[in-house]
Simulated scan of single mutants.
Amino acid sequence: MTAIMDYLALMGKLKKIENDSSLDGDARFYQEFVALKARYNFSATDVLRLLRPAASVAAPSLVQDLFEALLSEEKLAAAANSTTKPLRRYRNPHTGEVVETRGSNHGRLKEWKTQYGADVLPTWREL
């Protein structure tokens, strides 16, 4: 009975994917990609090396592997380009309360600045 339920669930997912409007664009891209690979006698590895020459790539055996490799490279590049502020911790010596923030617009920090003064707050920062 479990196999039938799995089958029906997969059929439902398939129908949902078939009705997705982005499937047409993806299918068109895939067909053009395969046609260009065949026309120029390129493997998926060759294409990936053309698109990402600096990347060290293991030979993808399928087009799906190529897409996954491109996505992982894209995610790594996006993560490397992000400029996240460092997390700062402030401990109130009067109450022992700790605030962790990446910016100075934290509501509790503003309250402390008003209550104890803005010049005291940097001394409460923990390294």
Results as ranks from 00 to 15, higher is better:
Asn105Met: 08
Val99Gly: 08
Ser72Phe: 05
Leu109Glu: 01
Leu10Cys: 02
Lys85Asp: 09
Met5Asp: 07
His94Trp: 00
Trp124Leu: 05
Val63Lys: 05
Met1Lys: 10
Gln31His: 03
Arg91Lys: 15
Arg125Phe: 02
Arg108Pro: 01
Asn92Val: 03
Trp124Thr: 04
Leu50Ser: 06
Arg49Gly: 09
Arg28Lys: 15
Ala78Asp: 09
Pro60Ala: 04
Tyr90Ser: 07
Thr95Glu: 01
Lys13Leu: 06
Arg52Ile: 11
Arg108Phe: 01
Asn41Asp: 10
Pro86Met: 05
Thr45Ile: 07
Asn41Phe: 01
Leu71Asp: 13
Thr101Gln: 02
Lys13Trp: 06
Arg91His: 04
Ala58Val: 11
Lys37Ile: 04
Asp119Ala: 13
Ala78Glu: 14
Ala38Arg: 09
Ala80Pro: 00
Ala27Val: 10
Val63His: 08
Gly25Lys: 10
His94Gly: 01
Ala78Ser: 14
Val99Thr: 03
Gln64Asn: 13
Val34Phe: 05
Glu68Cys: 06
Asn41Tyr: 02
Val57Ala: 13
Gly12Ile: 05
Lys75Phe: 00
Leu66Gly: 11
Leu51Asp: 02
Thr45Tyr: 13
Arg88Lys: 10
Trp124Cys: 09
Met1Cys: 02
Glu68Trp: 05
Asp6Pro: 01
Leu76Gly: 14
Glu126Asn: 00
Val98Tyr: 04
Leu50Met: 14
Val34Glu: 13
Leu70Lys: 01
Ser61Thr: 10
Thr114Ala: 15
Gln31Ser: 04
Ala77Val: 05
Leu121Ser: 03
Arg88Tyr: 13
Leu36Ser: 12
Phe42Tyr: 14
Glu126Tyr: 00
Lys16Glu: 15
Ser21Lys: 15
Arg102Thr: 08
Val98Leu: 08
Lys85Gln: 12
Asp46His: 11
Tyr7Met: 11
Lys16Asp: 12
Tyr90Thr: 09
